[in-house]
């Protein structure tokens, strides 16, 4: 099977976010970057599918040259091939989806995996958008997957339960926690990954569909009233929720 995995480079989830000097993006100083956590499920699922059915796994990212670090991590997890579509300035998702589509049209994957969302802009839009550009079906936020008889049977989380979606191949699957347990790269594979080639591609340009005007750190004013565990204070808490906040 020809398996493509789309990954993205994001700040580690423990990062404290500050607004950068341009007032529109984050302050990148001192930030440690990682593969977006959900994308690791995508890589793992791709590798397992290859181990079962044979084929190749290609990891693709759209980003600046610095993004080669996450491709090296993917290579250390033993993907066969890594591709960087170069984009030096921050672009909108439409640009990313179009460029992933351009690449996918050349290599004709049987299935494309990616994380349910990239944990920076948290938009959950890439799977559906890319799928539409490729004329493929997609299933988002998948926590269980079977591939057989030319179709994918995917279980996905919805409000108040789960649904099973059947999709014909080729298709796109966006991965949710629970789908698998991503492997840790082994030391010899990390060493080998350092010297593996990374294919560099020039991007196609698109019109800017979305323009970010500003970024801020939300600061909701909280009441901040601290109580003790005495009976009187717990009565007071119930009173506050009932009479002040009017929630119960």
């Amino acid at each position: 099977m020809n398996i493509m995995v789309c990954i993205s480079r994001v700040p580690d989830t423990a990062t404290r976010i500050l607004v950068g000097p341009d007032g529109k993006t984050i302050d990148t100083q001192g930030i440690k970057y990682v593969i977006s956590p959900y994308d690791e499920y995508g890589i793992e699922e791709g590798l397992r599918l290859k181990e079962k059915n044979g084929g190749t796994v290609t990891a693709v990212t759209v980003g600046a040259e610095a993004s080669t670090d996450i491709l090296r991590t993917a290579l250390a997890m033993c993907v066969d091939k890594a591709v960087l579509i170069k984009a030096d300035i921050q672009k909108d998702s439409f640009f990313v989806a179009k460029n992933l589509a351009e690449y996918a049209k050349e290599v004709n994957p049987d299935i494309i995996f990616m994380g349910r969302q990239s944990v920076d802009y948290d938009s959950l839009q890439m799977p559906s958008m890319l799928a539409e550009f490729l004329g493929m079906p997609s299933v988002s936020v998948v926590s269980k997957l079977t591939i057989a008889d030319g179709k994918a049977t995917a279980e996905r989380d919805i409000e108040g339960g789960k649904e099973i979606v059947e999709a014909s191949l080729p298709c796109i699957i966006s991965c949710q926690k629970g789908l698998n347990e991503p492997r840790y790269p082994k030391l010899p594979d990390i060493m080998k990954a350092k010297s593996k080639p990374i294919e560099m591609r020039e991007p196609v340009q698109t019109d800017e569909k979305v323009t970010v005007l500003g970024m801020s750190i939300p600061s909701k004013q909280r009441i901040g009233r601290i109580l003790s565990d005495s009976d009187g204070d717990i009565d007071e808490l119930v009173r506050l929720l009932h009479e002040e906040s009017k929630i119960i």
Partner: peptide, 16 residues
Amino acid sequence: KPVYAGKAQITAKVNS
């Protein structure tokens, strides 16, 4: 829209 899991938010306009 909240970004970075709500640690920040952006304002933006759609051009199309």
